[in-house]
Design a protein around this nucleic acid. Structure first.
Length: 423
DNA sequence: TCTGGGGTCCTAGGACCC
DNA sequence: TCTGGGGTCCTAGGACCC
């Protein structure tokens, strides 16, 4: 074999982050809620054992949570993001090439580590992250990323594996694939799983053994790659530099239903600022923008309304005043009075590198002035927090559209008040 | 009454051109 | 007026991920 990957995945990441800074929660059920405290997005093992499902609406759980003494947290992405960076930093001790796949998962290139004791090495990775950061992780090692995912999943679930599984031996790979459902394979979602079941393909082992033609016909070229990876042929490379995003989106549900245009506008302006900040951070400008507005998906007949407006710009931009102005204008075109709105948002599209500016004769904006303003704002926000400087259009911060976060933990690692609490 | 947010990639089909 | 083939570009929709 010529390639070797480790997938390191934090166990119940958000719940574990909360627990790291609150050791009295060790051994107790913990859940973390989505934005607006809407539904459960992370559960400790104990919470899973209580039968709390992923994505369950919070209101359905109130009784159970009270009865069982479940600790509940609003999501705190500042804390999780910082913990994630520390985990990655630690992992980089173990491989020169680390792909940060998501906030709680990284792939490590173990290249030609076949000569070392992989079992011991994987175990050392696990123990180091645990010791240095208090974060429990599972480690799966295999010749392809898809197989490393399979290994990781079993490492996490099987008591015998105890958090570590190395799949390099053909017989072990077969046994692992036989006990993995096709729908549990990376890249096979529930729709494909159902379709495959119709053809008698139930396990990952069945999937590995379909023909290329079958895979391509039913799962497209993407699925074919997955099948090959299950056979041990590496088809998906490590991505060391995350490719620049082609679209950037910011949206949130409102804390409470909103009926007034002015309030929706405050929320939208706030999202535009966030989105434009992300845009500048990756060094891009946008050529187009979509603004959207909607009521609840669960609203009754005649109470549903959803609309969007897409505009293209004469010249690519990352200027907040310009984007806010255009977004609010688009919003006024799609806003209809008489609805209880739940959500608004903005997508910045057709992104181009910020330095590849072409001048437009139609351009009426003083680009240099705006660039200086944006740079100043980015610096201020970096130092004093994202809401240190706001536009009048964003409102006072008291609108009912603001996120509901009733159980927010302190930002232990990144803010002074959190640092003091953590001591 | 209360149900997350942010992305990517692929394919099919239509519009349009020569 | 009718006929044929082949190419590109764009968009909507469907699939997936965490």
């Amino acid at each position: 074999m010529t390639s070797l990957f480790a997938l390191v995945d934090c166990n119940n990441f958000y719940a574990s982050c909360e627990r790291v800074f609150n050791p009295s929660l060790e051994g107790k059920p913990v859940v973390v809620l989505s934005n607006n405290d809407g539904c459960v997005i992370a559960r400790s093992g104990e919470a899973k054992a209580l039968g709390i499902g992923m994505g369950t609406p919070y209101f359905e759980l109130r009784d159970l949570i009270k009865r069982e003494g479940v600790a509940v947290f609003s999501s705190n992405y500042e804390l999780y993001g910082d913990m994630s960076a520390r985990v990655v930093e630690t992992l980089s001790q173990f491989s020169p090439h680390v792909e940060v796949y998501s906030i709680d998962e990284s792939f490590l290139d173990l290249g030609d580590f076949y000569k070392v004791d992989l079992q011991a090495y994987a175990r050392e990775i696990r123990q180091t992250v645990r010791q240095w950061l208090g974060m429990p992780v599972a480690v799966g090692v295999a010749p392809t990323k898809t197989l490393a995912k399979v290994a990781n999943r079993i490492a996490k679930k099987s008591p015998k594996a105890d958090g570590v599984l190395v799949l390099t031996d053909e017989r072990h790979i077969e046994a692992a694939l036989r006990r993995t459902g096709a729908g549990d394979v990376w890249g096979i979602g529930h729709r494909y799983a159902r379709k495959l079941a119709g053809y008698g393909v139930h396990t990952a082992w069945d999937l590995r053994n379909v023909t290329d033609a079958f895979a391509k016909k039913h799962l497209t070229v993407v699925g074919l790659r997955t099948v090959r990876e299950l056979r041990g042929e590496p088809c998906i490379d490590l991505e060391l530099v995350p490719p620049a995003k082609q679209n950037i989106c910011t949206s949130r549900s409102f804390g409470e239903a909103v009926t007034e245009l002015d309030e929706v506008a405050e929320a939208l302006a706030t999202h535009v600022v966030r989105c434009a900040t992300k845009l500048r951070k990756q060094g891009s400008k946008a050529t187009a923008m979509t603004v959207f507005l909607m009521t609840s998906r669960f609203a009754g007949e005649g109470e549903c309304y959803s609309n969007s407006r897409t505009l293209t710009f004469d010249a690519p931009t990352d200027s907040e005043p310009e984007l806010i102005g255009k977004a609010l204008k688009a919003l006024r075109q799609i806003f209809r009075p008489g609805f209880r709105y739940r959500k608004t948002g903005v997508l910045l599209l057709d992104l181009v590198p910020a330095n590849s500016m072409q001048l437009s004769l139609l351009d009426t904006v003083d680009r240099e002035k705006h660039a200086l303003l944006m740079h100043t704002l980015d610096t201020l926000r970096e130092r004093y927090g994202h809401y240190a400087v706001k536009y009048a259009a964003q409102g006072t911060g008291e609108g009912s559209w603001q996120l509901r976060q009733e159980n927010l933990s302190p930002c232990y690692t990144t803010r002074l008040e959190g640092l003091i609490r953590a001591r």
